[in-house]
Amino acid sequence: MFREKCLTSPQLSWDDFPAGTKSFAITVYDPDAPTESGWWHWSAIDIPANIHQLKRGQSISSAGGKEIRNDFGTTAFGGACPPVGHGMHRYQFTIWALPYKNMPVPDTASAALVGYMLNQDALAKSRITATAMRK
């Protein structure tokens, strides 16, 4: 039940991005997942530079972007669902300003590859962190 309630992406908005921004990306990452590599909950890329907000539950395709497969194996927002009793998990929502309209990755790219490209090419990024836990 908890996970189903969290599958709707939150409302997000951003401004004050650098000149030369041609697209945005959004990632949601849990560094506290019980893996050696964390857990990618969402990777959305190629969001046009004229888009500066997403409504709660808005599809990325309706904003002109596309989603990359997350660690749940889907191309959608994968909500917070920390393991019961695992303690507090951080969910890092990051907006990335990019110098190109289309990220040069295949449609089958992993979230890790997208993360690499974002860290390599971003003009700027901004992050907010939410937390969740289940007892």
Score class of each variant (00 low, 15 high):
Phe2Leu: 13
Arg3Lys: 15
Thr8Lys: 14
Ser9Asn: 12
Leu12Phe: 06
Asp15Met: 03
Asp15Phe: 05
Asp15Val: 04
Asp15Glu: 12
Asp16Glu: 13
Phe17Glu: 03
Pro18Ile: 04
Thr21Ser: 03
Ile26Asp: 04
Ile26Met: 09
Thr27Cys: 08
Pro31Ser: 09
Pro31Asn: 11
Asp32Thr: 02
Ala33Ser: 14
Ser37Ile: 07
His41Leu: 09
Pro48Gly: 08
Pro48Val: 00
His52Ala: 04
Leu54Lys: 09
Lys55Ala: 15
Arg56Ala: 15
Arg56Asn: 13
Gln58Arg: 09
Ser61Leu: 10
Ser62His: 14
Glu67Cys: 11
Glu67Lys: 03
Ile68Gln: 00
Ile68Asn: 01
Arg69Trp: 02
Arg69Cys: 10
Asp71Arg: 08
Gly78Thr: 05
Cys81Arg: 03
Pro82Arg: 01
His86Lys: 04
Met88Phe: 06
Arg90Lys: 14
Ile95Glu: 00
Ile95Cys: 03
Pro99Asn: 10
Tyr100Ile: 06
Tyr100His: 07
Tyr100Asn: 01
Asn102Arg: 08
Pro104Gly: 03
Pro104Lys: 07
Pro104Gln: 11
Ser110Leu: 09
Tyr116Cys: 00
Tyr116Trp: 04
Met117Gly: 01
Met117Thr: 08
Asn119Lys: 15
Ala122Val: 02
Ala124Gln: 09
Ser126Ile: 03
Ser126Arg: 05
Arg127Glu: 13
Thr131Asp: 02
Ala132Pro: 06
Lys135His: 08
